[in-house]
């Protein structure tokens, strides 16, 4: 688990064991180095939440930088909150009100990128079921004088789908750069996997990448390199 040593962990609390595992599987695919632990069902395998298992998962998922907890329905939230309150240091845990699937994916990618506990929690809370690309992410960067931009051809078949979007977000996450991706009339913040996916940019088409900041050129270079490799599809 040394790879996860510096990353925020995730705990998925659901009434259903299958649901918790499914969400953890989906989120984990985007974040190979993040501990995403599912906790679902009662001790006897029925539907419900098991307080003791949540307490254990919180401890197991915490590699030193804290844990973000997502839940499915009301009593899972209450169980999660009680488990956090019982911890030695409740401030290391954040129970977030977020859509379970989108929130877990967004949080996992943010955690993979090395984001702090507060930022991972914010990534989950900022994930909504609506088309993220249409939401204004931040001021349009084309007015910024020192912006660097490039047209990047999506050489893979599926285009900017879930996994490629996650790879792109991860590639620039640690850089000191603000990166925006445009496709057609839509614009997405490259820090948000969901916003990138919301662009629905298909394979064979080009996206425009605009970056500012100290590492702007490096951000563009990394995205071009990813695209050239076909996002390893």
């Amino acid at each position: 688990m040394t790879a996860a040593a510096s990353r925020v962990g995730l705990v998925i609390v659901s009434h259903s064991d299958m649901l918790a595992n499914g969400v953890a599987e989906l989120a984990g695919q985007m974040a190979p180095d993040v501990s995403v632990l599912p906790v679902g069902g009662t001790e006897e395998g029925g539907l419900g939440t098991d307080y003791g298992s949540v307490v254990e998962a919180l401890a197991d998922a915490d590699s030193g930088t804290g844990v973000v907890v997502l839940y499915d329905l009301g009593s899972a939230k209450m169980t999660a909150e009680m488990a956090v309150e019982s911890a030695d240091d409740p401030s290391r845990y954040a129970v977030v009100d977020a859509p379970l699937v989108e929130g877990a994916v967004a949080a996992a990618v943010a955690a993979q990128g090395g984001a702090s506990l507060a930022d991972v929690a914010a990534a989950a809370e900022g994930a909504s079921g609506e088309t993220p690309a249409s939401a204004p992410s931040r001021p349009a960067l084309h007015v910024v004088p020192d912006a660097v931009s490039a047209e990047v051809l999506l050489t893979n078949e599926v285009g900017l789908h879930a996994r490629p979007a996650a790879l792109l977000a991860r590639a620039v996450a640690e850089l000191d750069a603000e990166v925006v991706v445009r496709y057609g009339d839509e614009e997405a913040n490259a820090a948000s996997v969901l916003a990138l996916m919301g662009l629905s940019a298909p394979g064979g088409k080009s996206i425009t990448v605009v970056a500012t900041g100290k590492d702007a050129r490096e951000a563009i270079r990394r995205i071009e390199e990813l695209a050239e490799r076909g996002f390893d599809d």
């Binding site: 009662t42 419900g48 939440t49 098991d50 307080y51 009301g74 009593s75 209450m78 169980t79 009680m82």
Partner: peptide, 14 residues
């Protein structure tokens, strides 16, 4: 808290 499994667990537990 540790055995009820539904909303009544955290609520009555609290």
């Amino acid at each position: 808290i540790s055995t009820v499994g539904g909303a009544a667990g955290p609520l009555y537990g609290t």
